[in-house]
Design a protein around this nucleic acid. Structure first.
Lengths: 146, 146
DNA sequence: ACCGTATATTACGTAAAGGTAAACATATTC
DNA sequence: GAATATGTTTACCTTTACGTAATATACGGT
């Protein structure tokens, strides 16, 4: 239940449908490719999940929440490297989500600052470009007249 | 004189020091590396400049202005690929800067729009992160009490 | 002529986040 | 049981803007 909070779970009816899902279906549901899921496992974002006899990966509800959490952080512009740090903490402390929260908040705070900075930069950049554009236009019209 | 307008030339005393410069000194003056200059030539941003007998590159005042122009566009976030388009036009029309201006304005307009979009995205992103951060904090304090 | 520094060319390395292909095993469906 | 779909691993490809190294000449001054 803990991680559901952070993965934006809707919790509609909470059916106990604990039927593990395979990678293809999961990918389709989440709108990503299987390569992405395997890649996340490869770099240690997902703990290694259960496999069927032949090696086919299966994903429990918890696994899926974890993946959704990763995707959520990604949409917020957190890099996979930062998410790795979180994953490490999460796994080291035997999936105790509370151990993860302080670091998460730290990263988020950090990220807010970065976003603020970026916005300031873009704002001044925009001014530059517009100014430049005006000079160009003037230059052009002067040449039209001559 | 034409390109001087766009490269932000200070035009302090306008000494006729038309002594061609070599790549190392030029790089130092502009605060970039020689690799960068050669790279720009490699991908066609700089027309091939004159060489000394042994093949050493030399740069005239015009060449330097062209390079400054490229750097100026870069600081505004224009990609080298876009600058290539401009360079192509410039070279095709035998270095007539007026032929280049419409495309330049188009690129700048385009770029302003992109910057605006980025800023809007960052703004909503910031909201998301802050909201999320608040939820995390609440989650944490609840667990402290229990 | 010689020395030390600058330059030339070629070519591989880097970071991020996967894409894509090859070659194979497994699972499902008719 | 053959065809089809899905899964597996390994490993090289992509983009951007150069960094870095290796090797070979060239330039400038004495």
């Amino acid at each position: 239940m803990a991680i559901a909070v952070v993965a934006n779970e809707e919790n509609s009816m909470n059916k106990p449908d604990t039927k593990p899902v395979q990678i293809g279906e999961l990918a389709k549901n989440l709108g990503i490719t299987t390569r992405t899921i395997r890649y996340y496992e490869e770099i240690g974002l997902m703990g290694r999940t259960e496999r069927l006899g032949g090696g086919t990966r299966t994903y429990t509800k918890e696994d899926i929440l974890r993946l959704k959490f990763i995707l959520k952080l990604k949409t917020m512009g957190i890099s996979l490297k930062e998410i790795q740090e979180l994953s490490d903490i999460f796994d080291i402390h035997e999936k105790d989500f509370t151990m993860l929260t302080p670091k998460l908040i730290e990263i988020l705070d950090n990220h807010i600052a970065r976003v603020d900075e970026k916005m300031a930069n873009l704002s001044s950049l925009r001014k530059d470009i517009v100014e430049y554009r005006i000079r160009m236009t003037e230059f052009l019209t002067q040449h039209d007249r001559t």
